[in-house]
Nucleic acid binder design. Structure first.
Length: 173
DNA sequence: TGCACGGCGCTTT
DNA sequence: AAAGCGCCGTGCA
């Protein structure tokens, strides 16, 4: 017996002002987003965007526009649907809470923990943030340690700083 | 300011 | 079953 859903993902590159992100879509929506890997601009693109299913082509365009907006510190007009089914219930709750942080605002790991009703699960929240499959659009960069310290970032603190800076957030030195 | 530590909830091995 | 975290408050120099 084979399931006909989610057997395969559509991989596609998204060009931005800071390099090319790699996006993965399922038939449910955007599954993951990967930062441009250093000095590695052109992974050969096996499928042209022409072969992508219509829905995926639409989401791709929306995602690209949303990325561009966020990199300019602006609020995206539209977001693609997220397929975060890979996460545990807890992780999905954390990711949804992060997605609700407005552009230009910040939260602490503790605040996210409270927002999902587990005020003491602070470390677990940190772990779940690190597991966020859709960085930038699910703004894990807007989650800082208590008292404004920058905290961590799995893709590298440089990216976190850049994103915060573009959104006009100032960090304590 | 800075470091050390204990406790915490969840994921991963 | 146990380790290991993108944490956080406290306490001490």
């Amino acid at each position: 017996m084979k399931s006909k859903h989610t057997l395969h993902y559509h991989a596609t590159e998204l060009e931005t002002s800071v390099g090319s992100f790699l996006a993965l879509f399922s038939d449910q929506g955007l599954v993951s987003l990967a930062f441009p890997t250093q000095g590695n601009p052109a992974i050969p693109q096996p499928e042209s965007t022409g072969v992508l299913p219509p829905a995926v082509r639409r989401w791709r365009k929306i995602t690209e526009a949303a990325l561009a907006a966020l990199l300019k510190g602006k609020c995206p007009q539209e977001m693609p649907p997220f397929d975060i089914s890979s996460g545990t219930e807890f992780q999905q709750a954390v990711w949804r809470a992060m997605a609700a942080i407005p552009v230009g605002q910040q939260r602490s790991y503790g605040q996210i923990a409270e927002a999902i009703g587990r005020p003491r699960a602070v470390r677990a929240v940190g772990q779940a943030c690190g597991a966020n499959p859709i960085p930038v659009l699910i703004p894990c960069h807007r989650v800082l340690a208590a008292h404004g310290a920058i905290g961590g970032f799995s893709a590298g603190l440089e990216w976190k700083r850049l994103l915060l800076q573009r959104e006009g957030l100032i960090l304590p030195l």
